[in-house]
Design a binder for these strands. Structure first.
Lengths: 208, 208
DNA sequence: GCGTCCATGTAAAAACCCTTCACATGAACT
DNA sequence: AGTTCATGTGAAGGGTTTTTACATGGACGC
């Protein structure tokens, strides 16, 4: 049987692991985490259905690896959007929010693997680490925001970070998916997030 | 081949549709939306693997039906918690928030089918209708809340409803799942939701 | 009561997937 | 050059989805 889409020159693939992640991204992106199959990823990479087992314990482990990549890419996106709080905290923070929504829309495959695959994060230490680090990135921005409050009236950074994460995630999941999934509403995800943050920050006593 | 777990007395099952939904709830609850299989649901119901096709176009249609049931159950739960705003709006509203979190924790199967199954809601009109009605139930509570603001300073009910839905959903999805899924945090989902709502409502100028 | 219809269930089959195992290959290192 | 071992192959067992032709018997009219 010839499994090669683009026939390899050598018996060994050379970089199957990466090829599998790329294939998985393609497939999850177009057919969702559920539609993705290990065998088809193997076919995309031009190897037999058994080959992936040399790199991943099972199908789920590949999804977990994709999710890990996703968290790392996500952290980078957030970090870039924050851009060290330049030119000012308010502008940068708004960019961060939009970056969250952007990521959900433009990287549905990552987003799916990260949040909709039903993975038990605790099962994959590397995954948990990547997720934690992504959250840390968000906390950096929130910490700067909280620091604009007068001393003695600063709300806890952790709490605010969790609030911000939750609302961003909720809006992105429910209203901000590019595909047909999610619930269409007469207000855009971006408007929803911005209006929410205005209210919330006023509630915190932060006048941005 | 004998498919009967509890052998039927008659050739016809009698209420296969309901039996399939029950089986699906069991299976989704214990193995997630991904782990659930049509064939196993059929086995649970004591029928052959082909029988479910008399009631559902395909596997996904059963998941959609479960999700629909979920939205209806969800609407009931919210409505019960709201209890017509008794004894006062603030108390009742807080109950509604807790009901959302409760539902996510106590009905993981419904919650999974509703929000994590990757279903395209627009594909199933009945599903969309059920979801819309559930959201309407939430809007009732929000409308009463907004109405406590002095006239002329009332924020739009739709916007506030979407904010409330998003944050509840975000918190429930990220931090409020019973199983190992989600991200454990040192603050409980309930505390997070309540603290968020306090800040948010203050931001709206609502003193509850 | 009797016969017929048709909703509901069955068996069998094709096509696919997951995973394991014994075996093959060849890049890298002595 | 020879050996090792990570990486890939084939084949096989067991499971799933879905379709198709056929079986059953409850409900209905007569």
């Amino acid at each position: 049987m010839n499994w090669h889409k683009k026939p390899r020159d050598s018996y060994h693939h050379g970089n199957l692991r990466k090829a599998l992640i790329d294939a998985a991204l393609d497939l999850i992106g177009s057919k969702g985490t559920g539609g993705f199959t290990f065998a088809e990823a193997a076919r995309h990479a031009g190897v037999s259905p058994a080959a992936p087992y040399r790199h991943y314990k099972d199908r789920e482990a590949l999804v977990a690896d994709v999710a890990g990549e996703g968290y790392r890419a996500f952290a980078v996106a957030i970090s870039k959007a924050w851009k060290d709080g330049k030119p000012d905290t308010a502008t940068a923070f708004k960019r961060v929010g939009n970056a969250y929504l952007d990521f959900a829309r433009k990287e549905p495959a990552y987003y799916s693997a990260m949040f909709e695959s039903g993975l038990n994060v605790s099962t994959y230490p590397e995954l948990r680490a990547a997720a934690d680090e992504a959250f840390e990135t968000l906390k950096v921005a929130v910490a700067a925001l909280v620091a604009t409050a007068p001393e003695g009236q600063r709300p806890p950074v952790l709490m605010v970070s969790l609030h911000v994460w939750a609302v961003s995630h909720g809006i992105a999941s429910l209203f901000g998916r590019g595909d047909g999934a999610g619930f269409k509403q007469p207000i855009s995800a971006e408007e929803l997030l911005e209006s929410h943050m205005l209210v919330y920050l006023r509630g915190l006593g932060l006048t941005i």
